[in-house]
Amino acid sequence: MRTTIKTGAVALAAACALLLTGCGGSSGGSGSAQGAGSLADVSGADTKPGTVLDTPFAKPQLRLTDNHGKPFDLVKQTAGRPTLLFFGYTHCPDVCPTTMSDLALAKARLPQADQDKLRVVFVTSDPQRDTPARLTEWLGAMDKSFIGLTGDFTPIQAAARSVGVGIEAPVKEKDGSITVTHGAEVLAFWPKDDKGHVLYMSGTTAEEFAHDLPKIIRSEAP
């Protein structure tokens, strides 16, 4: 199994070009875009860890199957909730489990009332292997409240691209390994308008997420 992580959902106009984050491999380009090919505008490019988007992303119109085998409408079932969205896959050797573990650690530091408000959604980029049962087992080891979504690859890819995350269909190599290319960004949606206002790149730590989550929950820029 090999993974290529593709970052580049956002053009940091005032900063240098985004570096690619490898997860057992590397990719030769950014390739992800907002809408019909335009790049997202951002403010505070030198601010860490989150980047505030000048033009927030609409929440993807995505209807899939959740990790309990039930239909899940992302827009309707996270409406009015602070929501963190990540595209990845459970066989990923490093960046996916690291990111989700960091989110679990950060969430655990919140007061219980805020934990109950937060929705963390993991959408698989490898739906053939990531069945509901597999998602439940994998996510449950981190936080049983995390929501895993699986289904047809085409709408998953379209949803990812709508929020500037590039993913490609898994490819089986001649040696039997599977290459999965996906973005490593976490997108934070504010509850007041259900739009993605803040983007976190691969490498954001649990401490950094924990610092920002109370503001995300209040629909405030970190």
Rank of each mutant, 00 (worst) to 15 (best):
R2S: 08
R2P: 02
R2F: 10
T4E: 15
I5V: 14
T7A: 13
T7L: 14
G8F: 08
A9W: 13
A14P: 02
A14G: 14
L20H: 14
L20P: 10
L20M: 14
G22V: 04
C23F: 01
G24H: 04
G25Y: 02
G29I: 03
S30L: 13
S30G: 13
Q34V: 12
G35R: 13
A36V: 09
A36L: 14
G37L: 11
V42W: 07
V42A: 15
S43H: 03
G44Q: 09
A45P: 05
D46T: 13
D46M: 04
P49A: 13
G50Q: 02
T51F: 04
V52D: 03
L53F: 02
F57V: 00
P60C: 07
Q61D: 14
L64C: 07
D66L: 07
D66G: 06
N67M: 05
N67C: 09
N67V: 01
P71M: 10
F72C: 08
F72K: 05
F72E: 05
L74E: 04
K76Q: 15
Q77I: 04
Q77N: 06
T78W: 03
T78S: 06
G80F: 07
G80K: 09
G80C: 07
R81C: 13
P82M: 07
T83V: 11
L85F: 02
L85V: 15
L85I: 13
G88H: 08
H91I: 03
D94W: 05
V95E: 12
C96F: 06
T98G: 10
T99M: 03
S101Q: 13
L103C: 11
A104Q: 10
A104C: 10
L105M: 14
L105T: 15
R109Y: 00
P111F: 03
P111A: 01
A113C: 05
Q115T: 11
Q115E: 09
D116K: 15
D116Y: 02
V123M: 08
T124R: 00
T124Y: 02
S125K: 01
D126F: 13
D126L: 06
P127L: 13
P127D: 10
Q128E: 15
Q128I: 08
T131G: 10
T131W: 09
E137V: 10
L139S: 05
G140I: 07
A141P: 02
M142E: 02
K144D: 15
I147Q: 08
I147H: 09
G148T: 07
T150M: 01
T154I: 05
P155A: 06
A159Q: 02
S162Y: 03
S162L: 03
I167F: 04
E168R: 14
E168P: 00
V171L: 12
K172N: 12
E173C: 01
K174N: 15
D175H: 09
S177T: 15
T179C: 00
T179R: 11
T179S: 14
V180D: 00
V180I: 15
H182W: 06
L187E: 10
L187T: 14
L187G: 01
A188D: 06
W190I: 05
P191T: 07
D193Y: 05
D194A: 14
G196T: 06
V198D: 04
L199W: 10
S202A: 15
S202G: 12
S202C: 08
G203Q: 01
T204D: 05
E208T: 04
A210Q: 09
H211M: 12
H211P: 00
L213K: 04
P214G: 11
K215V: 01
I216V: 13
P222N: 09
P222F: 12
